[in-house]
Simulated assay, not measured.
Amino acid sequence: MTDQREAVIVRWPGQGPCEEAGLAELLAAYHLRTEAEKGEAVADADGLPDRYRAEISDPRTAFADDVVLVALSGDTAVGCLVVKAPVGGRSEAKRLWTDPAFRGGGIASALVSAALAHCAESGVSTVGLSVWKWRAGAIGLYERLGFTVTESWDERDQLVCMERAV
C-alpha cells in the first residue's frame, strides 16, 4: 500500500480518467455504506436510488456546477468531497469519503480544509454540511475543524446539520 502521507488533494476534473473512475468508485462506496447504515443495504450500486446511481455513473454531469475535491495517492483516488455551488454566500459540503484502507492519515481533514480554502477564495461566508448522527467520528472531525451544530435545514430523521463561518 502507498504511504498515506503521499496523498494530495486535486480539484476534479483533473489530469486523467483514473480520477473520474476513482471518484465513481468512492461515491459508490459512500452510498452503499450509507444505505447499509440506514438499514437499507443493497448488494451493489444498481440497487441504489436513482439520484445516487446518477452521481456514480456520471459524476461530471451530477456535479457540473460544483467543485469536487479528490485525494490521490499516486494515481489512486482515496478520498473525495463535493462543494456545492454557492447560493447567497453559502456553500454546502457533501459526500466526504475516505477509502477505509487510507483512514487515519489526515485525508478527510485535508479535504475539508481544502474545501474551506476554496470557499474563502470564492467569497463564500458560510459552509454547511449534514451528517448522520451515528457517524460520531465524522461529527468529531467537523467539530475539530470549527463546525457547530445548527438548526436543521433537512427534514430527514437522524441527520445533524452543522456549519461554520469561512
Rank of each mutant, 00 (worst) to 15 (best):
D154E: 01
L141I: 06
L129Y: 01
A77Y: 07
P49T: 06
T150I: 15
V87L: 15
L111Q: 07
L96H: 07
H31N: 11
G16S: 14
T61R: 10
S152G: 04
E121H: 15
A136I: 12
K94W: 08
G104Y: 00
A165R: 06
T76A: 15
L26M: 10
D50C: 08
H31Y: 12
G137P: 12
C18A: 15
L96V: 11
K133F: 09
Q4I: 13
A110F: 09
R144I: 10
A36W: 02
K38S: 11
G123A: 11
P49M: 12
D99F: 06
R144M: 12
P17Y: 02
D66G: 00
V10R: 12
A165Q: 12
V10Q: 11
S113P: 01
R33A: 14
E20F: 09
A28Q: 13
L116C: 14
D157Y: 08
T98S: 11
K133V: 04
S91C: 10
P49W: 03
T148P: 01
D66S: 01
E35W: 11
L129K: 06
E151R: 14
E6P: 09
S152F: 03
T61F: 01
G88I: 05
S109H: 06
G14F: 04
G140L: 13
V112S: 05
V68C: 12
P59D: 07
F147T: 04
L48D: 09
H31L: 11
D99T: 07
K84Y: 00
L27Q: 04
E6Q: 15
I107V: 10
A21N: 10
A54C: 02
F147D: 04
V149W: 00
W12V: 07
A77S: 14
L26R: 06
A138N: 12
G88A: 12
A138M: 13
E55G: 08
T148Q: 11
S152W: 08
W12P: 05
L81Y: 04
A77R: 01
P13S: 06
S125G: 14
I56A: 07
V78D: 03
G104S: 00
A62H: 04
R135Y: 12
L72Q: 08
R53P: 01
V8P: 04
V127P: 05
D44V: 11
L23T: 02
A71C: 09
T148V: 05
A28P: 09
V67W: 06
V68W: 01
G89L: 03
A114T: 12
D46I: 11
C80H: 11
G123H: 03
I107H: 04
L116D: 01
A165H: 09
L69T: 01
F102H: 05
E19P: 12
D65K: 02
R53I: 02
T98K: 02
V67T: 03
M162D: 04
G106L: 00
G137H: 13
F147N: 00
T150Q: 15
D58F: 04
E92T: 00
A41F: 13
V112E: 07
A77W: 07
G146Q: 09
